[in-house]
Simulated scan of single mutants.
Amino acid sequence: MVYNELINQEMFFLLAGPCVIEGEEMALNIAEHVKKVTDRLGIPYVFKGSFKKANRSRLDSFTGIGDEKALKILAKVRAEFGIPVVTDIHTERDAEMAAEYVDVLQIPAFLCRQTDLLVAAAKTGKIVNIKKGQFLSPESMKFAVDKVRESGDDRVMVTERGTTFGYQDLIVDYRGISIMQQACQCPVVVDVTHSLQQPNQASGVTGGQPALIETIAKAGIAVGADGIFIETHADPSCAKSDGANMLRLDLIEGLLERLVRIREAIR
């Protein structure tokens, strides 16, 4: 039912939350804040939080508070606020484990061609959100979507998160939104904050351009994206992952208000 609620509506939907679950209090606070805003604006909301971070530049980077502990926090967010939740998976075992706690399984961009992972996600019967690889054309995402559908799961969506531009930057080709909608025949999401990453920094810590969050988000809605993905934190400078490109939590209400006006204007 969640999938139909996301796609059968006139307003864009929102996937938003912290990059990684750092603790119960922070997750509940973010979910409560964003839900109040989205309820008022009529935006379908899915809480996002990674239960672990497997793709890290350095061995000493934060990866999580423990798989089961973080998944239970995601389940508590779902139960307490009555909203669906999404988390990343990296292995077939992750798919089976996370499916007990969440509504949407997200395939990281670097893993979007991993057949066994896509099939495992599909076999759970959960909604599957596949992030487009930074190295793939929009047309190529059709084959990732086909793997999920041919494994028995029609509830699939894809997410644009930027394309590699040189060694330390990403760029969003907005033609890809329409191309993927036509090629994949499923909802297409714009991952605003990851599109503004500056990876492969000499320090081993990914950089970002958060000042351009509104630019990317507005353009995504203007070209007809079905959903928006935003990572947010009360204090991004203290976030344990991806703080350099996250939106400060107190700024999300104003941004969403402006995005709603754009959506209404183009409708």
Rank of each mutant, 00 (worst) to 15 (best):
G66Y: 10
F47A: 00
A239N: 00
G49Y: 00
A122P: 05
M180S: 04
E68Q: 03
E150M: 03
M11F: 12
Y45K: 14
A144E: 05
I228G: 08
A31H: 01
I43K: 02
I177C: 01
T206K: 08
E22I: 03
I21T: 06
E139F: 14
G208W: 02
V172Q: 03
V37W: 05
D242L: 01
L118Q: 02
I221M: 02
A98S: 13
R78K: 15
N29W: 01
T193Q: 02
E264S: 14
S178K: 15
M97K: 03
K240N: 05
K72L: 10
F110G: 06
V156I: 08
E25P: 03
Q134P: 03
R258K: 15
K48N: 10
A183Q: 13
T215M: 12
D94P: 05
L118C: 05
Q185W: 13
M157C: 11
I266V: 15
L196D: 08
N245W: 08
A109G: 02
M246Q: 07
K126F: 01
R258Q: 15
D226L: 05
I107L: 08
D153I: 06
Q198F: 07
V102S: 04
R258P: 10
Y3H: 11
A144W: 06
N8W: 11
A16Q: 07
G66I: 11
A95G: 08
V260G: 03
V128L: 04
